[in-house]
């Protein structure tokens, strides 16, 4: 493997870490922030007939999780193409 390719792969890994960190930050804010630590605060806001905090805890967080996993797959596709890795 040439030195240039090695540097490229290191950059691929760095970009990968960045993608995962951003997505997991959102994961943490939604699951722990909105649904547990700030649930009482958010419950003052209504979504339909339930409090927003309750909604996040029981349903909203799951919708966000689905989107996170999808965005991850698409994001990584782009990185794979950019650095020309993968089978």
């Amino acid at each position: 493997m040439s030195d240039q390719r090695k540097t490229e792969l290191q950059m691929y890994w760095r970009d990968n870490i960045r993608a995962v960190s951003i997505l997991l930050f959102i994961w943490f804010v939604v699951a722990y922030g909105c649904s547990i630590f700030c649930i009482e605060l958010l419950n003052h806001i209504q979504i339909g007939n339930v409090g927003l905090g309750f909604w996040f805890a029981q349903q909203g967080s799951i919708f966000v999780f689905v989107i996170l996993v999808l965005v991850y797959a698409l994001w990584m596709d782009r990185l794979d193409r950019k650095y020309d890795v993968g089978e």
Partner: peptide, 29 residues
């Protein structure tokens, strides 16, 4: 379980699906 835990039933809902995000992003590939 949720039926009898009310709002706190979220621990099971989020626990089991949120763990899935960790698996998909950190381990599976």
């Amino acid at each position: 379980l949720i039926s009898f835990s009310g709002s706190d039933g979220a621990v099971y809902l989020m626990g089991w699906t949120g763990g899935y995000v960790l698996l998909a992003l950190l381990l599976a590939p």
